[in-house]
């Protein structure tokens, strides 16, 4: 009898404490998440647009966003150092675009093991511990690139591809999609690929030597923004307008001018703003307990912009960032 009474008293007390603590909780604000955004680079317009999107989401979701990127798009060790930094600083999540599919994997696994949620944007990494993947469907982007390249009356086509580092997953996927479509077209006689550093000067030199080595090339493709600028500049420098069809990636202002002038025939424009925004948004959602299927890419739209549609309403929206 006495015992049961003590039990009742205790349970009531517990209830009271719970209620009080519930009050305390409901008044306290959720803690601000610390999210690292580690990109391949910080200098191109593509990445600046990613940052703009990420910052928009940062304001909306009230997170502490720390942006890091190495000096060159080949420096995966730099990226790994930033991952270590994120681990040291007890980040809640890392939004990551891998330079190397394989070489960044160990660091990402380590971060995931340290309890950090990993969101991949733009370029994938060989890790099974990624919470969500966001970005361009790169094989599809490759196919679209092929469609833009093949949109010509020419009967005989020789294609030169300037791609970036072999280790980068997104570049390889783009080339796979691209070659798959090119090889289906019987007009295509030759496909040459050259791998260049992700820098427009280097890409220009690579493109020029490729063009000089294979003068029959009449389609030239650059598979990301700096390479796109490089091949466009090579075409301009060799004055190949009208003879070589140039297809570039992303909406660098140089490419836009060269598209306007006709040196570039088409731009494959991704949606970096969306990648940045969705990256932060998805990281926040994952941290709030929502789960995503990492094997299903959250696809940000990709579009072909040509001289004809560049100043349409949709073209403007895709090409020119707002403010």
């Amino acid at each position: 009898m006495r015992k049961s009474k003590v039990r009742i008293l205790l349970s009531l007390l517990l209830l009271a404490v719970l209620l009080l603590s519930a009050c305390g909780n409901s008044e306290g604000q959720a803690t601000q998440y610390k999210i690292y955004l580690i990109t391949k680079s910080t200098s191109t317009e593509f990445w600046r647009s990613v940052f703009a999107g990420a910052n928009a989401a940062k304001a909306e979701y009230n997170v502490n966003l720390i942006i890091r990127g190495p000096d060159t798009e080949e420096n995966y060790t730099g990226q790994n150092m930033y991952i270590q930094e994120a681990i040291r600083n007890h980040a809640d999540a890392i939004i990551f675009s891998a330079i190397s599919y394989t070489e960044n994997a160990a660091a990402i696994d380590e971060a995931a093991d340290a309890g950090i949620k990993v969101i991949v944007i733009d370029s994938d990494v060989n890790s099974s511990k990624v919470s969500a993947r966001i970005g361009t469907d790169n094989i599809q982007a490759g196919r679209i690139t092929a469609a833009a390249a093949l949109d010509t009356e020419e009967a005989h086509l020789s294609v030169g591809i300037v791609n970036f580092a072999l280790v980068s997953r997104n570049g390889q996927e783009r080339e796979i999609g691209l070659r798959e479509q090119l090889e289906k077209d019987e007009r295509v006689e030759q496909i040459y690929t050259v791998n260049s550093l992700t820098d427009h000067d280097a890409a220009r030199e690579s493109a020029i030597s490729l063009l000089q080595e294979h003068p029959e090339i009449n389609v030239l493709i650059g598979l990301n923004e700096p390479l796109g600028v490089g091949v466009a500049e090579a075409s301009e420098e060799l004055d190949l307008k009208g003879r070589v069809r140039v297809v570039s990636f992303d909406s660098n202002i140089r490419c836009i001018e060269l598209l306007r002038s006709g040196d570039v025939s088409a731009l494959i424009v991704q949606n970096p703003y969306a990648m940045g925004y969705l990256g932060v948004e998805t990281a926040w959602k994952v941290l709030e307990g929502q789960s995503f299927r990492p094997d299903q890419l959250i696809d940000t739209a990709t579009s072909i912009i040509t001289q004809e549609n560049m100043f349409t309403v949709e073209g403007q929206k895709a090409l020119f960032s707002f403010g």
């Binding site: 009271a16 209620l19 009080l20």
Partner: peptide, 24 residues
């Protein structure tokens, strides 16, 4: 409502405590 809720919960907690004391 959350503000009200926390006030009410606080009240409920206090009343519970008071009840416990009274019952003791």
């Amino acid at each position: 409502l959350r503000q009200l809720g926390s006030i009410l919960l606080l009240l409920a907690g206090l009343v519970l405590l008071a009840t416990l004391i009274v019952s003791a």
